[in-house]
Simulated scan of single mutants.
Amino acid sequence: MSVYIALLRAVNVGGTGKLPMSELRSLCESAGFADVRTYIASGNVVFKSALSKTAVKAKLEQCLADYAGKPVGVLIRTGKEMAAVLAANPFKSAAPNRAVVIFLDGPPPADALASASGKHAEEMALGEHEIYVHYPDGIGASKLKIPAAKAGTARNINTVATLAEWAGA
């Protein structure tokens, strides 16, 4: 069985997409996933499955759509992929709560950084299927807009590290 991490988009953020983590665990278990663990209330779940990454994504998206009555975006990473994302963090000296990874389904567009607007002190870098952003003044003070990020979901480095650790355990 492979270890997967599912990152849900727009769950429990700003009052939209309410999904209790106990419900998410139950949905994953009813889908046949094993050793299901959720982390914080923003749609992070680690589990095991014999299915392929593509099949896991499709199955979880269907379960969530049935539950919510609308599509819920899901990004999937294997445990190894999450560990690689953490290792590739170009902002290792930054406070982990001020650096985020924006997870995407595919490679970021070549112009992802050039098309960003509202940049002040933020630093950005492209990953394989991610965009890394360091917010030295905090994300709440930032006016940064990255059009490519609309199709993704962001997690701070603290969360990425915990998910990578859980997936490796």
Rank of each mutant, 00 (worst) to 15 (best):
L8V: 01
V3D: 11
P109S: 15
P136Q: 08
A58G: 06
E165Y: 10
A94W: 11
K59A: 13
W166S: 02
I131A: 09
V46F: 01
L8N: 06
K59G: 12
L144R: 06
E23S: 13
H134S: 14
A58I: 01
P109L: 03
A34I: 07
L7E: 01
K80W: 03
R98N: 11
L24R: 10
W166A: 13
K53W: 00
A121K: 13
E61V: 01
G17P: 02
S26P: 00
C63A: 15
L51P: 09
P90G: 05
A83Q: 14
P71D: 12
A148W: 09
G127N: 03
I40W: 05
Y39Q: 09
K119C: 05
M124S: 06
V46I: 15
L163R: 06
Y132V: 03
V133R: 05
L24I: 04
V160D: 04
D137L: 14
A41Q: 15
P96R: 11
K18M: 13
S49P: 04
P108C: 04
G14E: 08
G69V: 10
A50E: 14
T159M: 07
E130K: 10
M21D: 09
A110Q: 10
A112D: 04
E61H: 01
S30C: 06
G152I: 03
K119R: 15
I76G: 01
G152P: 12
K119H: 03
A31K: 00
A83N: 04
V45G: 05
P20K: 13
V72A: 10
V72G: 02
E123M: 15
